[in-house]
Simulated assay, not measured.
Amino acid sequence: MKGKVYLVGSGPGAEGLLTQRGRAVIDLAEVVLFDQLPGEAILKTLPARAEKIDCGKFGGNHILEQDEIEALMVDRAKKGKIVVRLKGGDPFLFGRGGEELETVRAAGIPVEMVPGISSALAVPASMGIPLTHRKYASQVTILTGNEDPTKPEPALDWKLLAQLRGTIVILMGVANLGKIAGVLVQYGKPATTPVAIIERGLRKDRRITTGTLADIAAVAQSAGVKPPAVIVIGDVVNLYDAELADLIPFES
């Protein structure tokens, strides 16, 4: 008897931005494997009857390793359970959803992908920072700030990234923020380029820290910035207005 696995993106942390399909699938779940990124507003709505498995990843501190998570998904599905792998944002944007999809398919288990609204898009927008703007940015580059350390050489071309005139959005980059800012300036990006760090998605306790490539690492350290956070680099950051920003635009 085989069950089914759903790879569900929960969006940027506000229950109002969880998709209708995501809500429906979660309500059907018999097993939910989750981490901290969906946020308390969504996690508290998980079905009471469901087995809930915390797979939280806090920087280098993992409750479960990736292979353990995938093994649990396969095990529960093979026992005939409806399994939801609940992830923040969208599963296929630096969420390791692709790896989980491969594993479940290889095990011969039915799987459905339920896309989510990516935090890379929604979080800056909620703070009044448009990633594109006719005056300031005609392109957006989204990248990870935490490449796989086992790679023989980095896949990111920082020299090329420094020359881009659009917006750069970095996920999972808090720990390496100083290195990232330094290498961008080293390769020619102006040190005065505006930077915004938005912590904790669209949760009630979210906050924004701003600066420039020259000082953002020091400012972030002084402010005690911690992941999860979205980092936005580019002139569009100047459109942020603390007095006009609606800090809680969705019910949590």
Rank of each mutant, 00 (worst) to 15 (best):
L171S: 10
E199F: 02
G182P: 03
P124H: 11
T144K: 00
G211W: 00
R165C: 11
A220T: 04
L156V: 06
Q221W: 03
V169A: 09
R206Q: 15
S138K: 09
L131Q: 02
A217T: 02
L184C: 03
D157T: 10
V236T: 14
V230K: 00
N176S: 15
E243A: 14
V174W: 00
G211V: 03
I233A: 11
A155T: 14
T193R: 05
I248Y: 11
I248A: 14
K135D: 15
G188L: 14
A218F: 02
A137I: 09
E199V: 02
G182D: 09
K135F: 13
P154T: 10
D241G: 04
S222P: 01
P227E: 09
P227H: 08
Y240N: 00
P124L: 12
V195D: 11
I142A: 12
I197M: 07
R200A: 12
H133S: 09
A218S: 12
P228Q: 04
V183S: 09
I198P: 08
Y187G: 00
T209V: 15
A220S: 08
I233R: 09
A218C: 03
G178Q: 02
I248K: 13
E199P: 03
T209G: 06
R203H: 08
V140C: 08
V183R: 14
T167G: 07
A196P: 10
T193M: 12
K189C: 01
K226R: 13
G188C: 11
D205L: 01
L143S: 01
M127D: 09
G182V: 01
N176W: 11
I180A: 05
T209Y: 03
T212F: 08
S222E: 13
P154V: 10
W158Y: 14
G166K: 07
Q139K: 07
T150C: 07
G224R: 00
L156F: 10
G234R: 13
V237N: 00
A214N: 08
G128C: 03
L213P: 05
N238M: 10
P124Q: 12
R207D: 06
A229R: 02
A162R: 12
K189R: 04
G128A: 08
A181F: 02
Y136M: 05
P124Y: 07
D148P: 05
L131E: 00
Y187C: 06
I233C: 15
G173K: 08
I208F: 13
D246C: 09
V123C: 11
P227V: 04
W158F: 06
Q186I: 12
G201D: 12
L177S: 07
K226T: 05
V174M: 07
A214I: 02
I129W: 06
V236Y: 11
A229G: 09
V219H: 04
L177C: 04
Q139L: 05
N238A: 08
L164C: 10
L164Q: 12
S138Q: 11
V225Y: 00
K159P: 02
A220V: 02
I129D: 03
L161T: 07
V183K: 12
G201S: 06
L184I: 06
A155G: 12
W158N: 00
